[in-house]
Design a binder for these strands. Structure first.
Length: 335
DNA sequence: TGAATTTGACCGTC
DNA sequence: GACGGTCAAATTCA
């Protein structure tokens, strides 16, 4: 196979990827879909690496297999098949996407608390201010993530409180969606540093985002396992428009101030949808299991490699320490 | 100067 | 009464 033909076929791979990038974020909420998609993409990458090595070894003359196709052609077809399978998985997963955090019995209504109407709380309505008027949330509607970095899920959050927690060395920060009032988005999250060395953060999400605004493009940064610096990050953009000169908006900048202070490695300004090299290596080598694999509760736009747990009133998902496996061709992948 | 964060106070739940 | 979640005035930031 000539290099030109290989280049042409690889360009088709990128077209497939571009098509995939236009899939809605809701499609990506399904965990199984994400697992399979990631597995397919990694498999494709493996084939691409083999193809690269093959071309480096024999750029013009190629081996011919029994089907009459060159090895490079076979590999390119496998790559295309891998990405097409990914698209197929996304499409098939669309029908069974289930909200992880059902938005039932939200403590808020129309930007105000339900309790305001019910009169269960805030009995002293003559009060001038409304401090402390709340109902304690139901613990059953949460998604919990434990990450090694201050995660940025792409949504714009506004910090509204911070409290020292009993038996905790670090205070808990309280965030609500920036679009709480303009779009009635009731999503909130609590972030607490639970460990210093190595740093570990626990983020608890409450309620789904109902806003349409992602403050940042939904991207996944996959760290190249073969490189140690940030120069080889692979950026996966789930939006239809790529923004190469992206800079985080002010809201996110401000939110991430603490993060930047704590973690100097994350100064790139890119969102933190990072699949670490270790975990990619795990996928490739099919050796040790991933601790866990996650997708965030926020419209499925988070993919990271940290511990993740979801609970909901209608169903529950406990993914902590869960090992999930799938068969991809002749490979068994453990998540 | 507007927006975001900080921080003390308030209040419901346990 | 302790604890945790939220409010909102004060403060800080861009």
């Amino acid at each position: 196979m000539r290099k030109k033909e290989v280049t042409t076929r690889l360009s088709r791979v990128f077209i497939v990827l571009s098509t995939w990038s236009t899939c809605s974020e809701a499609d990506l909420m399904n965990h199984h879909t994400i697992f399979r998609v990631i597995g397919e993409l990694i498999r494709g990458r493996k084939f691409a690496q083999q193809l690269e090595a093959l071309l480096r070894k024999s750029p013009e003359t190629d081996d011919i297999d029994g089907s009459g196709m060159t090895s490079a052609q076979v590999l390119v077809n496998k790559i295309l098949d891998s990405y097409n399978q990914s698209l197929s998985n996304i499409s098939s997963g669309e029908s069974d996407v289930v909200s992880e955090v059902p938005a039932v019995d939200s403590p808020f209504l129309d930007g105000r608390r339900k309790s305001d109407d019910s009169g269960e709380s805030c009995k002293t309505s003559v009060r001038k201010d409304r401090r402390g008027c709340y109902k304690r949330r139901r613990t059953s509607e949460t998604c919990i993530r434990e990450t090694s970095t201050w995660i940025d899920d792409g949504h714009a959050w506004r910090k509204y409180g911070q409290k020292p927690i009993l038996n905790a060395t670090h205070p808990r920060s309280y965030f609500r969606c920036t679009h709480r009032f303009d779009q009635r988005c009731q999503a909130t999250k609590h972030v607490q540093k639970i460990q210093d060395d190595p740093p570990k953060f626990r983020t608890t999400y409450y309620d789904n985002h109902t806003c349409n605004n992602l403050s940042k493009s939904s991207q996944v940064i996959i760290m190249d396992p073969t490189a140690g610096d940030n120069s080889s990050k692979i950026i996966w953009n789930f939006e239809s428009q790529i923004k190469p000169d992206y800079e985080p908006n002010d809201q996110v900048k401000q939110e991430n101030k603490e993060q930047v202070q704590d973690f100097p490695h994350n100064k790139s300004g890119w969102p933190d949808y990072i699949i670490s090299p270790d975990h990619l290596t795990t996928f490739d080598q099919t050796s040790g299991p991933l601790t866990a694999f996650s997708s965030g509760s926020d419209r499925g736009d988070v993919i990271s490699s940290d511990i993740y747990s979801c609970t909901a009133s209608t169903h529950s998902m406990e993914m902590d320490h869960m090992i999930v496996g799938s068969v991809f061709g002749d490979e068994f992948l453990e998540y």
